[in-house]
């Protein structure tokens, strides 16, 4: 059976209202907002959906791989509830706030330990780093080809190759790539399906493995290339002029006058 590994990162909910978003400039990281649980990074959910779409059409096994200092089991288990088959968690204090090169090294070593695979899926970028690098690093370390920013992925030629639609500014290219390969998945794939009640029940019976840094015999510190010197929130002072008016037409007229004044019409 073909094996797909999906890399899913747990992040602070990126839709947290700005008023609740706080950083600690001392430690240079964002503080998890009170009462808002973490989520799976949105594009990683798209990546899982891409894997499930393949599973809809042929027999495959899906492993979800997630790394962090401390992971919420409820959050990662939600991936099993929608149809992933097993979970591999990498949890260790040494895995906190890694930069891309380090994350790629740790994830690649875990993938080697997991063993055989036909396809690795990542999100186009994590919602916290906004980087889009880790997938490339994993592919390079494992010596497999990769395709970036993809909206559709399937096995062809019995699994020897993978065919993807790579997103471009004005459409997409169809690319074939030798398997095993790594593909980064974009939102165009569609949002992750909702789990049913049976899904949640089945999830509790699916295997979950946890590895620490020593299980992988890896010290992420040695891979660090990028260093954060400073983290800050940009100031934003409103300069908005509100257009008032007795009724709709008065407001419309008010705006048209402004557009004329600004020479925009």
């Amino acid at each position: 059976m073909k094996h797909i590994i999906v890399c899913m990162k747990q992040v602070i909910d990126p839709e947290t209202p700005l008023s609740l978003f706080k950083i600690d400039s001392e430690t240079k990281k964002a503080l998890p907002p009170r009462g808002t649980p973490p989520v799976l990074s949105p594009f990683d959910e798209n990546a899982l959906e891409a894997a499930l779409k393949i599973k809809d059409t042929e027999e495959v096994s899906i492993t979800v791989l997630s790394m962090g200092k401390k992971l919420s089991k409820a959050v990662v288990r939600s991936s099993l509830a929608v149809g992933a088959d097993q979970l591999v968690l990498l949890e260790d204090p040494a895995f906190e706030d890694l930069e891309s090169t380090q994350s790629a090294a740790v994830l690649a070593s875990a993938i080697r330990k997991i063993g055989d695979f036909d396809l690795i899926l990542c999100g186009i970028q994590a919602a916290d780093t906004n980087a889009g690098q880790v997938g490339h690093g994993i592919a390079r370390i494992l010596g497999i080809p990769s395709v970036n920013i993809v909206r559709n992925v399937k096995f062809i030629e019995g699994g020897g190759k993978i065919e993807v639609e790579r997103v471009l500014p004005d459409g997409y290219d169809i690319i074939t790539v030798d398997a095993p390969a790594l593909v980064t998945v974009s939102y165009e794939v569609g949002i992750l399906r909702e789990p049913g009640v049976e899904g949640f029940l089945a999830a509790t019976k699916k295997p979950l493995t946890t590895w620490k840094a020593e299980d992988l015999e890896i010290d992420p510190a040695q891979f660090q290339k990028i260093e954060i010197l400073k983290l800050y929130c940009p100031e934003r002072t409103s300069q908005c002029e509100m257009i008032e008016g007795a009724d709709i037409d008065a407001k419309a007229e008010g705006l048209v006058k402004i557009l004329e004044k600004e020479k925009l019409i």
């Binding site: 964002a30 916290d128 400073k230 983290l231 800050y232 929130c233």
Partner: peptide
């Protein structure tokens, strides 16, 4: 970073 909520140097 964080979707533009913060900037990192």
């Amino acid at each position: 970073v964080y979707g533009g909520n913060a900037l990192a140097v």
